[in-house]
Design a protein around this nucleic acid. Structure first.
Lengths: 194, 194
DNA sequence: ACTACTATTAGTACCTAGTCATAATAGCTC
DNA sequence: GAGCTATTATGACTAGGTACTAATAGTAGT
């Protein structure tokens, strides 16, 4: 029985990890031991009771919710902006942005930062990307901080298009460059004032 | 007291919505009524008890977890692929992909689908985007299904570059077109076989 | 064989955050 | 004063536990 205990506790850990919603009673039946044994096991392994486990999962979900919505809204954090002129944002490359194999950032995240910034810099309710011409100058790795600088180079009120140039740097080294042709609904920034 | 009840129930709904972790006792104190009143209110409003609420949040978190990891790996679902030749993926535009104001998909999501597909179609461990020339032909709205088709048009073993053209459609209508110049580490697909 | 020790099981009292049912009370209206 | 709604109180019961004590089985050391 000695080795059975160790084994059982190992399996118990895994079982609870992949399904935190299981009761001690169900666990007892699963491992063919008494409920008390399961409770002793949990005590030894410092595994909290069902309700605490569920609560923990729920709380994490709640934290995530607060975090993930603004992240999706604008990729990167805007640290400076002058509408219709220029803007700067920073974006820290984390685990979830890179290829597993080589820790290099997936292109679309770097693009997303630049594109978000191009949208943000335009002083319009409805700014959409029409075209873009982009170049990835060098790969960005996990842990690096990308600083994107956007500059509005041309505002064409006639066709409602604005050209925004975005350059992204890591330690002053150019990693990405893009020219975005943005579509805007309203004619100019003067119409905005209402 | 008649109107107080309605008001209280309205506020109760909101309170619980923004903080499902609150007990009846805390609610009773907050609204200066008895615990029983809170319970009658929950009964009338069909709001489940604390533990059920927490469990519900936790279960949703668990479902999300299964869903969100593979989504980040490749944007869109690849339904057909012939390495170094062509590939097709589908991407359903949901709430989290659009601007709140007008329900139009953010450009970087449409780009991400195309870019992911361009990476996937290349038969190489290390495929990175070097340049891209893209056009958003028309805006994509929430609820629409984007079908992206990638075609490898040129493989230049000499400089390790591959050109991939991606066209994305909604109901056979072109919404996005891009030419991706991809960097690959290994010389050709024959080297792959090992 | 006796003792020591570990593992397991059983049982009791208690806890939280409730449900469900019944009853009492307060305040207002007709 | 009867009828009604809203509120509060009370008691019995539940799930899924904690904490503690005690009993039992099996194995190892001397």
């Amino acid at each position: 029985m000695r080795r059975t205990k160790k084994d059982r506790q190992q399996m118990l850990k895994e079982t609870i990890k992949e399904n935190p919603f299981i009761t001690d009673e169900d666990l007892a039946e699963k491992f063919q031991v008494s409920v008390q044994t399961i409770r002793l096991d949990r005590l030894e392994l410092s595994i909290p009771e069902l309700r605490e486990r569920i609560k923990y999962v729920a709380e994490k979900k709640f934290e995530d919710e607060v975090r993930s919505l603004p992240i999706e809204e604008v990729i990167g954090e805007i640290i400076d902006i002058e509408l219709d002129q220029s803007a700067i944002s920073i974006f820290d490359v984390k685990e979830e942005h890179v290829f597993i194999r080589n820790k290099i950032a997936r292109g679309h995240h770097v693009f997303a930062q630049a594109n978000s910034l191009a949208v943000a810099v335009i002083n319009d309710e409805l700014a959409l990307t029409a075209k873009a011409n982009i170049q990835f100058k060098r790969s960005v790795k996990q842990g690096e901080r990308v600083i994107a600088k956007a500059k509005v180079t041309k505002i064409d009120d006639g066709i409602g298009r604005t050209i925004v140039e975005v350059s992204s740097y890591v330690n002053n080294e150019l990693v990405f460059k893009g020219e975005f042709e943005m579509y805007r609904s309203e004619k100019s920034l003067k119409d905005e004032k209402r």
